[in-house]
């Protein structure tokens, strides 16, 4: 009986000189190199920020105002508060509107043209560069001075960030609700629950975790945005003076101070970068924890 297969040595041992094994090793190595290069920026950016900013962390950093140009010391206290304030305004607008919109899409719309239009529009809005959100709010609110004749305000900055957060919140709510088993909804309807009671008492609580995760990620993204804030919230070297005045934020502080020709300001920019990175990292970890909490 003849065979067309090459004569093998009958050995079952691994033979490194075979062509397929050599190619295998080569490609494994290549994939390893590329993945290392891929994570390099991540590690370098984080390390660089941690080293450059981390050494500047002190209590004064969080409690003091930035120094006037030419002076030493100071902190980023006002920008820290400003970022929290602006993000809070954005969340207060984007979460109710976004969750409400998501509930409409997933529970109330019947997939007609209006719902389709919102879904597609929402996806497009999610991809719109953040500076467009800024210029929109600038044109609509800052330039027209609708807020008590004020131009640049914390409220305008919050609105710009809300525009950025909205698509993420709508999308995660919509998809989170769609993941709730239909049987659960039927169960509630079957014992005589109205649509509203079903959504608020059964469906929304069941989808709490995916929605909360999406919201946390949206907040983390908004907190780090610079472009929409530059010409809405502007900046202020002073402590925040209410919602209808310009306000300092961390991202704009970094933008302003990093390019100044003064060493103390450059250092503060690094310190602010460090704090911002840690805040966003914490938000992401919290979102991951939420997700794991749900998996249980």
């Amino acid at each position: 009986m003849t065979t067309t297969f090459p004569a093998s040595s009958k050995s079952l041992h691994f033979n490194p000189s075979l062509k397929r094994n050599r190619l295998d090793q080569f490609l494994t190595g290549l994939a390893g190199v590329f993945s290392t290069i891929a994570v390099l920026p991540l590690i370098l950016v984080l390390l660089y920020v941690l080293i450059q900013g981390g050494r500047l962390i002190s209590i004064g950093l969080f409690t003091q105002l930035p120094p006037a140009p030419g002076l030493d010391g100071g902190g980023i206290g006002n920008a820290l508060i400003g970022t929290v304030v602006v993000t809070l305004i954005a969340s207060l607008i984007a979460i109710p509107v976004g969750v409400g919109g998501g509930v409409f899409l997933a529970e109330y719309s019947s997939g007609g043209w209006f719902a389709q239009f919102i879904r597609v529009g929402n996806d497009i809005l999610a991809g719109v560069p953040s500076i467009i959100a800024g210029i929109f709010v600038y044109g609509a609110i800052v330039a027209t001075r609708v807020f008590f004749g004020q131009s640049y305000t914390a409220a305008a900055g919050g609105l710009a960030l809300a525009v950025l957060m909205l698509p993420t919140v709508i999308k995660t709510t919509d998809e989170g609700l769609k993941l709730v088993p239909r049987e659960l909804t039927w169960g509630a309807i079957g014992v005589g629950a109205s649509k509203f009671v079903t959504v608020t008492r059964i469906t929304l609580p069941s989808a709490f975790t995916p929605i909360a995760t999406g919201v946390v990620l949206a907040i983390a993204r908004a907190a780090g945005e610079t472009a929409p804030l530059i010409f809405t919230a502007l900046f202020s070297p002073f402590w925040p003076e209410g919602l209808f005045n310009p306000i300092a934020t961390m991202s704009v502080l970094i933008f302003n101070f990093a390019i100044m020709p003064f060493e103390p300001q450059n250092e503060l920019a690094w310190a602010a970068s460090f704090v911002l990175v840690v805040m966003i990292l914490a938000a992401n970890l919290f979102a991951r924890w939420l997700r794991r909490f749900a998996a249980k």
Binding site: E183, L184, G187, A188, G190, I202, P205
Partner: peptide, 11 residues
Amino acid sequence: GMVFQKPNPFP
């Protein structure tokens, strides 16, 4: 009232 094919207790 209604009972469904798949048991569907509320969470």
